[in-house]
Design a protein around this nucleic acid. Structure first.
Lengths: 226, 226
DNA sequence: GATCTCGCTGAGAGCTTGCTGAGGCGGAGG
DNA sequence: CCTCCGCCTCAGCAAGCTCTCAGCGAGATC
């Protein structure tokens, strides 16, 4: 059985996107659009973790958190908040809680969710070690090696590679990659992706077979050459 | 029992073509030409999914969607829209919704329909793996093998073969193939098809018996030689 | 068997898609 | 304030794919 996450956001698009990303990674997911709704669903769904938008139509996310605390003391919460609401504005962080500022990339969000679950000891078998062929990644130390040789990656390169490692062999579309690795409202030139694929290949391939295959007109896949 | 789809488009030709493609794939289909008509039929037909043209004679597709939301909250909608109406113009996407720009290939449309149904958990049996004789196709990784040997296909070759695999043994007419694999208003030389059949045979047959049979004067079929 | 029609395939033009090197910009750290 | 590093943009180049065309071969018809 996998961990359950309740997503509370009044923007259906956002709730949807987050929900898809999480269920893709094997989490059980339910969504709620209002504070009331959230409080209702907590009883039946019994999530291990709650993703909670700070701004909700009927009440502040914090109020939800407080009422929650009264009932189901120990469910950790990750708050979703706009970037300009500074960190200290996020009051009421209990032990185990965390927050993420919008806009975020789905990769980042999923990473936070895993981290909080691990921290609060509610995580299932954790996949901290990701491997494919002779490529290894440790998501706790952020170390990456190929055939034993250490590889230095920048943050973006790292998150891109991690998304590939979580979806090996599968063909990932440009859109999918941009949505997951970049911030979800990234509006810039889609060719960044190609640049980063190029960076990754340059760093990974000197130690062996090419691993990132181009599927022309569709996307990219992490797989061994044929 | 299979999934039901309501097709709403005021162009009878388009509605017809889509309807045929979907019923061919085992979906239950009804069509409506106006917004009023659509709202009427939803009650009796109770579709699992709605294909909705954005431009309708009596009202905007979005209005239909809104009224719908009021009544039958959770039916996902796929909007059909002209290519130049940019993505963000497609407002009001609810959870589970999607959109497709015209012109599209029927293969693409069917793929979207399946995806949305799967996403909203209303899908029937999953068909990610397609096989025929010793030929195998995995639609997630886009890997194709014959007798275990991997085969590299370009995008068009892949989509053509997939359509064959979804309709094995059946004789498929040129028109049918062109409509499904190419964009439905493809105006070019119909002989592309022959070229691609030739490409496919060249790639598939070295590993065994010929699989794509010509039915002279009619079309092609995927079946073992006799 | 002759003729005609339909289908097959090799070659190649043109276009789309992807790759990569160079550089500007901005933030972090000294 | 200056420097360095990582992120993103841009433009030119390369490669791959799609489609066209034409000539040939194989079936069909009489």
């Amino acid at each position: 059985m996998s961990n359950r996450v309740l997503v509370v956001d009044d923007e259906p698009n956002i709730a949807e996107v987050i929900s898809m990303a999480l269920s893709y990674q094997g989490f059980g997911v339910e969504t709620a659009g209002t504070g009331r709704d959230a409080l209702d669903k907590i009883g039946s769904f019994r999530p291990h973790l709650i993703l909670l938008d700070v701004m909700l139509p009927d009440m502040e996310g914090f109020d939800v958190a407080e009422r929650l605390g009264a009932q189901h003391s120990n469910v950790p919460i990750i708050f979703l908040t706009a970037r300009d609401e500074t960190a200290d504005k996020v009051r009421g962080l209990q032990q185990g809680d965390d927050y993420v500022t919008k806009p975020f990339s789905l990769e980042e969000l999923v990473a936070r969710v895993r981290m909080v679950l691990r921290r609060t000891g509610k995580a299932e078998a954790d996949d901290v070690r990701l491997t494919f062929e002779d490529l290894e990644m440790n998501d706790e130390t952020r170390e990456v090696t190929r055939a034993g040789a250490p590889i230095n990656l920048t943050d973006t390169e790292y998150r891109l590679l991690r998304y590939f490692l979580r979806n090996p062999r599968r063909v990932l579309s440009r859109t999918q990659l941009l949505e997951h690795v970049w911030e979800y409202d990234f509006g810039g030139d889609a060719r960044v992706l190609e640049t980063y694929i190029s960076y990754l290949r340059k760093k990974l391939d000197p130690h062996g077979e090419p691993l990132i295959q181009t599927v022309r007109g569709v996307g990219y896949a992490l797989r061994a050459a044929r």
